[in-house]
Amino acid sequence: MIEIERKFLVNSDAFKSEAFNSYTIKQGFLNSDKERTVRVRLIKDLGYITVKGKSSLDGLSRFEWEKEITTSEANSLLSLCEDGIIDKIRFEIKSGIHIFEVDEFFGDNLGLIVAEVELKSENEDFDKPSWLGKEVTGRIEYYNSQLSKNPFGTW
């Protein structure tokens, strides 16, 4: 239940032609404290509740627990969330043996595109696509919980 991931900015929209899947995500936070976050997501016709622990010092890993919930439950919980609901489209792109999840944000975070890759270990090598930009792993301002409070559009 430990998530290990690296996060990058995206420097072009070339990733879209490489995507094998895409879907919209609406998410909010019942708790966005940096020690622990509780996130609610609506993806297509499925809901999820996720608890994440505090990130490691380098931002590469943290505890994550997720459970599927009904759409009705997700909508009810979204209505209780803190201000700053996140709307985005997620694109999934295969690169070598890994899958990058690229999020294109809308609303107050319009213009922000971030790619994440999950790894099995902090030292694992991975192929870096040409559209991958600057690494922002561990930069708290790029966490969705922070984007809900301090949107990209206000930077």
Rank of each mutant, 00 (worst) to 15 (best):
M1L: 06
E3K: 07
K7M: 11
F8D: 01
N11L: 03
S12M: 02
D13G: 04
F15S: 02
K16V: 00
S17E: 15
S17G: 15
E18L: 13
E18N: 10
A19Q: 13
F20R: 09
Y23R: 03
Y23H: 10
T24C: 06
I25C: 10
K26V: 15
Q27M: 05
Q27S: 12
L30K: 03
L30D: 12
L30H: 11
N31I: 05
S32T: 00
S32R: 05
D33Q: 03
E35D: 13
R36C: 09
V38L: 05
R41Y: 02
K44I: 01
D45R: 01
D45L: 04
L46N: 03
G47Q: 02
Y48Q: 08
S55H: 12
S55Y: 14
S56M: 04
L57F: 08
S61L: 00
R62M: 00
W65F: 13
W65V: 05
E66Q: 10
K67N: 04
I69R: 01
I69T: 00
T71G: 00
S72E: 06
S76W: 12
S76L: 11
S76P: 10
L77S: 11
L78E: 15
L80M: 15
C81D: 04
D83W: 08
I85F: 02
I85T: 04
I86V: 08
I86D: 13
K88A: 09
I89F: 02
I89P: 10
I89C: 05
R90I: 02
R90G: 12
R90E: 07
F91K: 04
E92I: 06
I97F: 11
I97G: 07
F100W: 07
F100N: 07
E101Y: 06
V102H: 10
F106N: 05
G107L: 09
D108S: 14
D108N: 10
N109S: 09
L110K: 15
L110G: 13
G111K: 03
L112A: 14
L112C: 14
L112G: 07
I113D: 01
V114P: 06
V114R: 04
V117F: 09
E118I: 13
L119E: 00
L119R: 01
S121C: 04
S121F: 06
E122S: 06
D125E: 11
F126Y: 11
D127Y: 12
S130E: 08
S130A: 10
W131N: 00
E135C: 04
V136Y: 10
V136L: 06
V136R: 01
T137R: 02
R139L: 14
I140T: 02
Y142L: 09
N144G: 12
N144V: 01
S145Q: 10
S145A: 14
S145E: 08
Q146M: 14
L147T: 01
S148Q: 07
K149D: 07
P151E: 12
P151D: 11
T154K: 09
W155H: 12
W155D: 14
